[in-house]
Computed example of a mutant assay.
Amino acid sequence: MLFTLAFTTLSKANTPAGSGIFNLMRNLGGSVGIAIVFTILTEQAQVAWNQMGGHISAFAPAVRHYLNVAGLVQGPLAWHLLGMELERHAAMRVILDAFAFLLVSFLAVLLIALFIPSTDPGPRKSPPL
């Protein structure tokens, strides 16, 4: 649909230039989109790590219970495993945040596309024979 919309107003002589500009803009849009999603991933990963990591303490009863159930004593290995688990949970939260952002942006683009006027001139009359 977007390709058709881009080329309906171009003459045959301007089609190669239009194709080049269309593909350039499509590639730039994809690159910018990837950069935005990656920025969201990296920034929100740090936020999630800090928010969830603030609840991990050597004095928290839930942490002591988790370590006892896992058969670990409080030491470097236990804290390393807690850090790995925290990283795993933060990564899952960030991926869900990125997908929510992509859903909202997709719906916004879909709404914009619905309001683009149609360029279809209607049914064509066949030439007389």
Rank of each mutant, 00 (worst) to 15 (best):
V104D: 00
G18W: 06
A48W: 05
G71V: 07
D97T: 09
V37C: 14
I112K: 01
D97F: 08
T15V: 15
W79L: 04
G30M: 13
Q51D: 08
T119I: 09
S57L: 13
V73P: 01
M25P: 00
W79C: 03
Q51E: 10
I34H: 03
I116D: 01
L111R: 06
L2M: 08
G18D: 02
P76C: 06
F7R: 04
A91Y: 11
F59G: 01
G53A: 09
L103K: 01
S31A: 15
G30Y: 07
F101P: 01
L67T: 09
A91Q: 14
F3E: 12
A70R: 08
T8E: 15
G83C: 05
N68C: 06
L10T: 08
V63A: 15
T39Q: 07
A108I: 02
H55Q: 14
V73N: 12
A17M: 03
L67K: 10
F101I: 01
I21L: 13
R124F: 13
I21W: 06
A58N: 07
Q74H: 03
T8G: 05
Q51I: 10
A58Y: 00
L129Y: 06
A13M: 08
A90R: 01
A17Y: 07
L67P: 05
F3M: 12
R88D: 09
L28Y: 06
M25W: 06
D120M: 08
F59D: 14
L2V: 08
L110E: 04
L86Y: 10
L5C: 02
L24N: 03
G20M: 10
M1A: 15
L86E: 01
D120A: 08
T15S: 07
G53C: 06
T4H: 05
L110V: 02
K12F: 14
K12S: 14
L72H: 09
L24Y: 05
I40W: 01
V32A: 00
P76D: 15
W79G: 02
N23V: 11
G29T: 12
P127M: 01
F99C: 11
R64S: 15
D97Q: 09
A17S: 10
L96V: 07
N14V: 05
S118Q: 15
V104C: 05
V63F: 02
A13P: 04
G53Q: 03
S19L: 15
T8S: 10
T4A: 15
I40N: 00
L82R: 05
E85H: 09
V47P: 01
M84I: 09
S126H: 09
Q51K: 07
P16M: 04
S19K: 00
L107T: 09
F22E: 08
P123E: 12
A62L: 07
S118N: 14
V94F: 13
V69G: 00
S19Y: 07
A62Q: 13
L77F: 08
I56K: 00
W49C: 02
G71Y: 03
T119C: 05
L111Y: 12
W49A: 04
M1V: 13
H65P: 00
I40K: 02
R64H: 10
L67C: 11
T15A: 13
H55K: 10
E87A: 12
S19M: 11
W49K: 07
I34N: 04
V32R: 00
A45Q: 14
L77N: 10
I40H: 03
Q51G: 02
F106K: 06
G18F: 03
G83P: 00
A100H: 02
N50E: 12
N14T: 06
T8C: 15
G54Q: 07
R88C: 11
A58R: 02
G75L: 13
A60W: 03
R26Y: 05
A70M: 13
